[in-house]
Write a protein that binds this DNA or RNA. Structure first.
Lengths: 204, 204
DNA sequence: GCGGCTACCTACATGAATGTAAGTTAGAGC
DNA sequence: GCTCTAACTTACATTCATGTAGGTAGCCGC
């Protein structure tokens, strides 16, 4: 109402972003929606509305709704694998104490909703989207093995079980940890405290 | 095509169940659908088709689609709490070894898709449906405490952490355990082996 | 300035899920 | 056998997510 010079049409004020920035913004918004309101809330219209764009425009950029979801999954899986890789690097740099590793893994699974997304993927049956995580997890096994384990097949086995233990706990904590801790009267850090306390006993 | 005596209309062969049986059958079918194909597959039409009934009939019995989902959640939560209660009873009967407890809890979370359902509930934000589990979990804490722990506030704390550890692992295992174990080359029982191996160290 | 590429838009079509209205018929009780 | 309840049905209406068609307009290179 301020600068409406021409009475018929106010300027549409249509901004034009590059395709790469448009995609990034849409994926980030979709992620926020997923974390805040669950998978069902991630629709083309909802995402478009949040960034001031029509749903048709999102189809233009991603090809389809499934394309957007796939991009979202890819983005979160990439973040998770990056975080795991960083944890591996820290571990190898001779600075990685078990507690630091645990914190990094829990953060990686929790921040950005990676754990919740993984649950969604697993429930929906799109297991192939989980596949890129495989290498990251196996890298983590290698790094821990280099750092802590004695030689031999038995040592390797202990490491994979330690990683399984830590990953399952971090995942569970990110999805229903808040509810469970509340039921038990435990604090926010209870799960990672437990893992940090018992993880070393797998190594030696 | 066999017994079509009257050419105009074959007998509709409409069977009529009592409301309670109709509801039970619908909920059981919905559960099977949820486990097999994920939350998105649980629709009025799909459930109705499986039991030879129209979607309108399901609305007649449950009031709405949300009513059916709510009944489904209630049914699965009830099964889970029953299973936990049975585990508690076994534990108190002086027959409950740690390994048996672990197996029972893992079964309870896994069978009937309770773990996957809990993930769905948590992701959707319907946290109040998780509420009936609270008492069952706290009962479990009591039973374990009676059986294994020494006295004092510290003992209680160790028990709650043991339960948290076991519950998070069982939950995580039921949702992404298959994928994770595959990535790590571990067998089906790896998670419950781990829990059974380390759970006693929480108690003493 | 201006032409073209394409990021955007509006408008419409489609299909699926849910819900409503108005019947039909099965079976229980008299 | 008759009647009445309610478990069923069919035949709508509605809403929403997705997708398509075609036009509009911002920016880059000339």
């Amino acid at each position: 109402m301020s600068s409406g010079v021409k009475t018929k049409k106010t300027a549409p004020k249509r901004r034009r972003r590059g395709p790469e920035e448009a995609r990034r913004e849409a994926v980030a918004t979709a992620r926020a929606l997923l974390i805040a309101s669950g998978p069902k809330a991630v629709t083309l219209k909802a995402v478009g509305a949040k960034i001031g764009v029509t749903h048709a425009n999102l189809i233009h950029h991603f090809g389809s709704a499934a394309g957007l979801q796939s991009a979202l999954m890819g983005s979160m899986v990439r973040d998770l694998t990056d975080a795991l890789a960083a944890a591996v690097t820290n571990l190898r740099s001779d600075e990685g104490a078990p507690r630091a590793l645990v914190d990094e893994v829990f953060e990686a699974v929790d921040v950005g909703g990676a754990g919740r997304l993984a649950a969604w993927i697993a429930l929906s049956g799109d297991l192939e989207h989980l596949e890129p995580i495989r290498a990251a997890v196996q890298d983590l096994v290698e790094a821990v093995h280099e750092k802590f384990a004695e030689e031999g097949e038995d040592g390797r086995r202990r490491i994979t079980r330690a990683i399984l233990f830590m990953a399952l706990t971090a995942f569970g904590d990110s999805v229903i940890g808040a509810s469970l801790r509340d039921m038990l009267g435990e604090g926010d850090d209870a799960a990672r405290d437990i893992v940090a306390r018992w993880l070393p006993s797998f190594f030696y």
